[in-house]
Design a protein around this nucleic acid. Structure first.
Lengths: 205, 205
DNA sequence: TCCATTCTCGAATAAGCATTACAGAAAGAT
DNA sequence: ATCTTTCTGTAATGCTTATTCGAGAATGGA
């Protein structure tokens, strides 16, 4: 597993690039729909080298999920950098539309397509996806609390309820993407959501 | 496959009851996560009897999906019976919350957990789930058109966009249910959605 | 009673699955 | 150049998968 070792034969493949391929395949086909043979073929690495470099299938999936969070999943973190509550919400929806409707990655969201349901013996994968979804909700909630402290968010509103509502709106967009919505359609759906939230339209994109 | 035949040994199991069990298992574990051995065990029928009665796994899944539409999936059809647009929307959200939060069936929606992603050789199952989701959107759209004709729905609003927005709101609730939301939490999320749609609160339930 | 039909059940099939054992190859260190 | 370490690729592992074969059991009709 050590990559910084100078002894021995060097690996013939780029570990990050291979992990990126695995992430995309899990994203597209889900944990159960992706076999080690599929992965070996797509990554261009023989199975035993995959096991040597990443561990077993579940470990590889966990690493793919980690990469998902750190690379494409950063779209929500970028929205968090927005200074005000309103610009944050707008950026959250805008970035989500870009993310879901873009061509660089499979449509829909890794945390849903990765494993929404599964057999009893692959539940760790499902639990991992659930964990990420709940973490994202926690991040959203923290931002709402910050907005409340800044006086940008009504004290009448229940933070937990509003968090779940926002989360469900964003998940809804992910399902729309899985349904085949184009980026333009996703954008108009997001615009409707923002309008009903009482927040202005998306900026150009 | 004929059930109305009077000749030969009669089946030792109730076909409808067995199909109901299969539906619930596919609903909970998804197409790929459910093996024929799982089904055989849960249905209490030996594999060859399943093949004789329902055909192969994909055919059984299709029959389970048909049953889903005709029995638990009727919650949206019941909402369609509401006389006005506003009572329809309210009933749609209320019934969805009852459906998702109830204990009779697995949490979340069959059309998502059944197969949202899959390997290349099980794509018919995914396509079937997508087809049902798109049919449900079409039903929603037809109701919106009716509401427009009745003057209950603004002519300014784009019907297709509004349909997709409603659909994404309801899908979002299904993901919330999969995330572990209780019925009470789902209800409050739905209430927020209705409030932002400009429609009154849910009636008691 | 005997026949025709259809179901049940255990066993078998062939393919695919995740995973690993092993032999050889490639590199840096000495 | 040799040694040690680590990677590569082939082939095998044992298990699970969906599906079917064939023998026996159960029924209604003649």
């Amino acid at each position: 597993m050590k990559t910084s070792n100078k002894l021995g034969r060097p690996a013939a493949f780029d570990k990050d690039a291979a992990l990126d391929v695995a992430m995309r395949l899990f994203w597209k086909q889900g944990y159960e729909g992706t076999s080690m043979a599929d992965l070996s073929h797509a990554m261009g690495i023989h199975p035993s080298s995959i096991y040597a470099a990443f561990g077993d299938k579940q470990a590889l999936f966990a690493l793919a999920a980690k990469r998902y969070i750190e690379v494409p999943g950063q779209y929500m973190v970028r929205a968090l950098a927005e200074p005000t509550f309103e610009t944050f919400i707008r950026a959250a929806f805008y970035n989500t539309v870009e993310f879901l409707g873009g061509k660089e990655y499979p449509a829909s969201c890794f945390t849903l397509t990765g494993s929404l349901s599964c057999g009893v013996d692959t539940e760790p994968a499902k639990a991992l996806m659930l964990d990420i979804r709940l973490r994202n909700e926690a991040v959203l909630k923290a931002r709402l609390l910050k907005a409340r402290r800044a006086g940008e968010f009504s004290k009448e509103e229940n933070i937990d309820d509003y968090t779940r509502y926002l989360s469900s709106l964003l998940s809804g967009l992910a399902v729309q993407a899985a349904n085949g919505s184009t980026k333009a359609q996703l954008k108009r759906t997001a615009e409707l959501a923002l309008r009903h939230l009482g927040i202005g339209l998306l900026s150009e994109g």
